[in-house]
Every structure is written in C-alpha cells, then in structure tokens.
Simulated assay, not measured.
Amino acid sequence: MNIKKVEIIEFTDPVCTWCWGSEPLLRKLETRYGDQVEIKYIMGGLVRDIRDFYDSYNDIGGDPERSNSQIAKHWLEASERHGMPVKSEGFTLFTDEYPSSYPQNIAYKAAQMENQQLADKFLRRIREASASEARQTNKKEVLVELASEVGLDIAKFLERLSDGSAEAAFKEDLKTTYKYGVRGFPTFLIKYGKKEMLMRSYQSYESFKSIIDTISSGEVKDEIPNNTEKDILDFIEKYERVAPIEIMLSFDMNESETNTLIKKLEENNQCRTVQAGNGYYIEVIVRPMSCDQATGVCRV
C-alpha cells in the first residue's frame, strides 16, 4: 500500500537566522508526525554578494565588516525570539574575499549528490558553525572540515565542488525558488499528493498543523509524545546534539522542567552540555569506542 506523505519543503539558506530559528519547529514536526512527514530543502541563495546586498529593515549590506556587525546584532535579537544559540563575539561571516553565502548553498548540493541523510546533517552543522560558533563557513577549508565531521566522502565532495556539478544543481534550486516567487527565507511549501500550499517566513507549529489538517483532509494526524527521561534521551541521541528549546518545543515542556531534566541527565553521566554563544547544546555521552556505521567514525 502506497501511503502518501506530507512533504515540507523549506526554501532556505544555510546562514539565514530565521531558518536557524526554525530548526526546533522542524524537529517538533518530525517528532509529532514521524514517518508521515518528509522534510526537504531547496537552496535559495540569500546573499550573492554582501557588497551589492541590502536589507533595509535591519540595515545590513554594503561593506562586509560593517555588515558583520549588523548581522551579529540582528541574529542576537532574533535569538531572543526563536531561542537557538548565537555567538556574536568574533563574528565574521563576510569579507571582501568571501562576500557570498553561495559557497554554503553549493556545498549542500555537493553533499546531497552523495547521501541525503548526511547532507541534512551537514546543513545542520553549517548552521551551527555559522550561528553559534561564529565560524566563516563560506571558506572552503571550513566547509571541508564540517563535511568530514558528518562523514561525507571528502574526495567526492571536493570533486563535485570543482567540476561544476554542485553549482549546476544549486542553479536548478534557484530556478525552483524563482518559480514559486520566493524572495524571503524561510519559505515553506507543504505538499500532499497533488495539493500544495505556500507559507512565508518563520511560522508556529500551530500554523503547520492547521495546514497539514487542511491539505490532508484530516488524514494526517500528529501524536503528542511521552516526555519520559528515556523518550527525551532517545530524542537527543537521534539528533546527536540539540538546543534546550528543541526539547521544550517538541515535548511541550517549560524551561524549568527542561533544565531539571538536563541536570538529571548530566548527573547520571548520560549527557553533557556544550557552551555555544549565548546558549548551549545537550549531547549524549557516547561510550568508549562506539562506532557509527553511517559515518565510519569511532568516538571516545
């Protein structure tokens, strides 16, 4: 029996702060709907050249150094709303030598040509490195390091970057972006069979739930997960690294409940916290010589 899934397609850019802020929402959708939803990404190319770019609302664009200062300020303000960690100290995303976010978009397409699952992990790492580690992720050497971390074949990755195939795939994504009239990120395309609806900008879970109910005529239903210690530990282990807001949102927990749980997991030596800018991540402590078959990495 061929069961239809709801496709949630995010038109995105790896260095868009509101796309970063939408990560908890996407994880809640995956947690609540499970195999009934499939999340995909189309690279929209936010900044072709920061020197020719201008965001009048946030006064971002023109001189790279000045833009970095304004972007850091904007991202910190956005973080207060979406709750994902941001590091402003030492923030250098653009320079005259590296004025574009296109390299990150193209790198994702190079990864996608090898393995979709690893490509999505890679996208998350680019977002983390850009937003919460203040790393200059449009540099090839940084992208290669991040690609290596998630287990991509670096020889193939570099080949696709150099032979033009990844750039060609990115241009196809740009065509799709223009076709749907997308001019801001994130924008979400929700599809169910032949039906589709477009939602622009950062959205709430309730908005997605309403559209999924409508577009599937009530056939696709969410399920509230248990919020036991084991369920949340499984959630952290699935994603390897999560921000507290991602636990809070997925399991409908308040800040106090979440902090108490994280403290307990730390005391039991099951998880650790890792400082990240104005926030932190929670990671499962991997036991000695635990090897990941997908990435080919053994961790201690």
Rank of each mutant, 00 (worst) to 15 (best):
6 V>S: 06
7 E>H: 11
7 E>R: 10
8 I>N: 09
8 I>K: 07
8 I>H: 06
9 I>T: 15
11 F>K: 12
11 F>N: 10
13 D>I: 06
13 D>L: 07
18 W>Y: 07
18 W>K: 13
19 C>W: 04
19 C>T: 12
20 W>E: 03
21 G>A: 11
23 E>Y: 10
24 P>R: 14
24 P>E: 10
25 L>Q: 08
25 L>P: 01
25 L>N: 13
27 R>I: 00
27 R>Y: 09
27 R>E: 13
28 K>A: 15
30 E>Y: 04
31 T>C: 08
31 T>Q: 15
32 R>A: 05
32 R>W: 13
33 Y>G: 02
33 Y>L: 03
33 Y>A: 01
34 G>V: 01
34 G>I: 05
34 G>H: 03
34 G>W: 06
36 Q>W: 05
38 E>K: 14
40 K>A: 11
41 Y>V: 00
41 Y>A: 04
41 Y>M: 01
44 G>P: 01
44 G>C: 02
45 G>A: 08
46 L>I: 06
46 L>F: 04
46 L>E: 01
47 V>Q: 01
48 R>D: 11
49 D>I: 01
50 I>C: 01
51 R>K: 13
52 D>C: 00
52 D>G: 00
53 F>W: 06
53 F>N: 10
54 Y>H: 15
54 Y>G: 00
55 D>F: 00
56 S>T: 02
56 S>H: 03
57 Y>S: 14
59 D>E: 10
59 D>S: 11
59 D>I: 02
60 I>F: 00
62 G>E: 01
62 G>A: 03
63 D>F: 01
65 E>M: 01
65 E>K: 09
65 E>V: 07
66 R>V: 03
66 R>W: 00
66 R>A: 03
66 R>E: 10
67 S>K: 02
68 N>T: 04
71 I>G: 04
72 A>W: 02
72 A>V: 04
72 A>T: 07
73 K>Q: 11
74 H>R: 15
74 H>C: 03
75 W>E: 10
75 W>R: 10
75 W>M: 11
76 L>F: 05
76 L>Q: 08
77 E>D: 10
77 E>P: 00
79 S>Q: 05
80 E>A: 11
81 R>W: 08
81 R>L: 14
81 R>Q: 13
82 H>E: 07
83 G>P: 06
83 G>C: 06
83 G>E: 04
84 M>Q: 14
85 P>T: 14
86 V>A: 06
86 V>W: 00
89 E>D: 14
89 E>Y: 01
91 F>D: 09
91 F>C: 08
91 F>R: 05
91 F>Y: 14
92 T>R: 09
93 L>Q: 10
94 F>V: 07
95 T>H: 02
96 D>Y: 12
98 Y>W: 08
98 Y>E: 13
99 P>C: 07
99 P>L: 05
100 S>I: 05
102 Y>L: 15
104 Q>W: 01
104 Q>P: 00
105 N>R: 06
109 K>T: 07
110 A>L: 08
110 A>W: 06
111 A>H: 12
111 A>M: 12
112 Q>C: 08
114 E>M: 14
115 N>H: 15
115 N>K: 15
117 Q>S: 13
117 Q>T: 15
118 L>N: 12
121 K>D: 14
122 F>Q: 10
122 F>I: 09
124 R>E: 11
124 R>T: 14
125 R>I: 04
125 R>E: 15
126 I>K: 03
127 R>H: 13
127 R>F: 08
